[in-house]
Simulated assay, not measured.
Amino acid sequence: MPTMVLTGEYVSVAGNTLSEYARKAELTVEVEEKDVTTYTALGWKVLIGGLKSGSLALDLLNDFAAGKLDSIMWPLLGQVVAFEVRPTQAVVSAANPKYTGEVLVKEWQPISGSVGDEASVGVTYPTSGAVVRATA
């Protein structure tokens, strides 16, 4: 059985490669469940899929230097921007699919932590429109 350890995910937001700051990237997609049960279901629920949605959650190590993470993300607040994530930084292939779409940059937490903590930020952005999986 093939297995993989994530050691080098590729993460891009608004055309900016964020892999050097990323500790975790999670892309979640889901579909609403719609209950269409009628009396003919004989006591069982009948469900169908509704609208799809998703989110991109990132744990990032912040960097406040010019041209680094904070200066990249700050101007994106409130915008819908493109994203791309891949299991590895290698070229896109059947073994390394890319997932693309758009997210709403609805939050940015530039400063968070206690004494002695690394400067990190955790954000979750909802997708806007379709998420596409490609192998080429």
Rank of each mutant, 00 (worst) to 15 (best):
M1W: 09
P2N: 10
T3H: 03
L6T: 01
T7N: 04
T7A: 02
G8R: 02
E9K: 05
E9T: 07
Y10N: 04
V11N: 06
V11K: 04
V11L: 11
V11R: 03
S12P: 03
S12F: 05
S12Q: 14
V13L: 14
V13P: 02
A14I: 08
G15T: 10
G15D: 00
N16P: 06
N16R: 15
N16E: 05
T17I: 10
L18F: 10
Y21P: 12
R23P: 08
A25Q: 01
E26H: 14
L27I: 06
V29H: 08
E30N: 14
V31K: 14
E32M: 05
E33N: 13
K34D: 01
D35Y: 00
V36F: 00
V36A: 02
T37P: 04
T38P: 02
G43I: 06
G43R: 03
W44P: 01
W44C: 00
K45R: 15
L47T: 03
I48W: 00
I48Y: 00
G49M: 06
G50W: 04
G50L: 11
G50H: 09
L51H: 00
K52T: 14
S53T: 15
S53C: 03
S55F: 02
S55E: 11
S55L: 11
S55V: 11
S55G: 10
L56Q: 04
L60C: 14
N62Q: 09
N62F: 00
N62H: 07
N62A: 15
A65L: 04
G67F: 04
L69V: 03
L69A: 05
S71D: 12
S71L: 13
S71F: 00
I72Y: 03
I72F: 03
G78H: 02
Q79L: 06
V80E: 08
V81P: 14
A82H: 07
A82F: 08
A82M: 07
F83R: 04
E84G: 11
E84Y: 10
V85A: 11
P87V: 01
Q89P: 10
Q89A: 15
Q89L: 03
A90N: 10
A90K: 08
A90F: 04
V92G: 07
V92A: 11
S93V: 01
A95M: 09
N96D: 07
K98G: 15
K98D: 13
K98R: 15
T100W: 14
G101S: 05
V103M: 09
L104I: 10
L104W: 07
L104K: 09
E107W: 01
W108E: 04
Q109F: 04
Q109R: 07
P110W: 09
I111C: 09
G116Y: 13
D117G: 10
E118K: 13
A119E: 07
S120H: 09
V121M: 13
V123R: 12
T124S: 15
Y125C: 01
Y125K: 01
P126Y: 08
P126L: 11
P126N: 12
G129T: 06
A130Y: 12
A130V: 09
A134M: 08
A134N: 14
